[in-house]
């Protein structure tokens, strides 16, 4: 297992307000990544989702898994075009709220012809919030 990269912006091209990975805890390129996203009241999207009742949009949990999945690649993604090509069997079991430390676990399921299938879980304090399979395409 290689050491987690200290510099997340050096690896992912995403930027504020759309960089949704705060820490990489475990990383085995091509196999498995465990990362974290810390949710705060300061998240811009919580202003309207929803007023007085902030909860992280489910699609952003999928995006968090996709971004965490970027660390399955050993090299920086700044010079690579990677797109979300599919979402399968997504389940949202419980809301993610301000104050939550979200654990993003992503495993590579297989690859063919530039497509990679990932299986991901978002959990908080041992409780599963979201599971989904993602397909990403690398150009």
């Amino acid at each position: 297992m290689t050491a987690p990269p200290a510099d997340i912006p050096a690896h992912l091209p995403h930027r504020y307000p759309f960089l949704l990975v705060d820490r990489v805890l475990e990383r085995e390129p091509g196999v498995r990544v465990v990362a974290e996203k810390l949710v705060t009241f300061g998240e811009p999207y919580l202003q309207g989702h929803f007023q007085g009742r902030p909860l992280v949009p489910g699609v952003l949990l999928l995006e968090m898994l996709a971004q965490a999945g970027g660390f399955l690649e050993s090299d920086s993604l700044h010079d690579t075009a990677i797109f979300l090509a599919g979402v399968q069997d997504a389940r949202f079991k419980a809301p993610a709220l301000p104050g939550d430390r979200l654990r993003l676990e992503v495993r590579a399921d297989g690859a063919f012809a530039g497509m990679v299938k990932l299986r991901g879980t978002v959990s908080c304090e041992g409780r599963e919030l979201c599971i989904a399979s993602l397909v990403v395409k690398r150009l």
Partner: peptide
């Protein structure tokens, strides 16, 4: 092409 990945 996503079906192709599923089939593989």
């Amino acid at each position: 092409s996503i079906d192709a990945l599923e089939l593989v």
